[in-house]
Write a protein that binds this DNA or RNA. Sequence first.
DNA 1: CAAGAGGA
DNA 2: TCCTCTTGG
Length: 335
Amino acid sequence: MGCNLKDLAPAKPIEISDLSGQRVAIDVFLNAYQFITSMTREDGKPLSYNDKPVSHLMGFLDRASILVSEGIDPVFVFDGSPHDLKRATLNERKTRKIEAKAKWENAIIEGDMPAAKKLGPQTAEYTPEMVAETKRLFDCMGLVWIEAPMEAEGAAAVMCKRGLVGAVASQDWDTLVYGSPFMIRNLTAHGTRKFGRVMQAEMISLDEMLDGLGISHSQLVDLAIMIGTDFHPGIKGIGPKTGLKLIKEHGNMEKVSSVKGFDLPENLEQIRSLFLNHPTNEDPVPISRPAVEEDLIQFLQIERGFGEGRMKRALDRLSSVGKLSSKSRPTLFDF
DNA sequence: CAAGAGGA
DNA sequence: TCCTCTTGG
């Protein structure tokens, strides 16, 4: 997932309030996997109710309601159909998942619960049914979601380029390679403790990054391709540091390859254009609405067994910023 | 992941 | 009060 540009990207700490009033694009799959793999039971499988996983719904309910209460208007972006060039990456993930599943089953048979708890997350699946449920949740919350033609990260970056969202919240450096002018890291983890330190949200400006590195966006794309992307494994022996040096010295990947003597990717032009001209549709981004209390309670509390306390917390967060409507008690936003 | 519990 | 651990369904 993404290439390692961490050392090359100048990240400025920001406060959540800096983003108040802005639309922020969020990659759904990335977050969904985070929830499914971290909100687990003893056997490492996601929390569930009547044998149906609920971790994704819980995570998005909490996360989205917090963002809304901070004045942020999230736009959730689902992945579309992957490009053929991503096949190898996806197959590799699938193989790993199958291996992990075999190990997990073995651990269960042997009653080795610590091992199962570790392996379970590696078998995590975000099924079409779970995707549909996530969309239903966003609908209940009145939040905007869109389906990318291809890569969610790419579509989000293009939306930011077009000014449809103020920034893209992501952990994936591909966001910048796709040309998103602004990328926010640790948006939702802001203020939480990880490994003893308090997580801080940070903003990266693509222009500032390119200025600082002294390269153009298309040179960043070539650099990323050399380091390795979802569409190509990259060039062995070239990481962020030497890659940057080589691109600055020689200008582009063709020159670097002739100097260093490696083969160019077969589909170099195609890969470049996936980053430089990512396919998107021209549909306008819908406008978010207030959540509907009854719909949320019906779905999560009645159908999926959510506790009253969790429901109340989420509803309170929404209503604190006037983003909760009720069929019996409409808000001003309904008019 | 976020909240709450329980310990330092 | 702060920090770590556990729970959530």
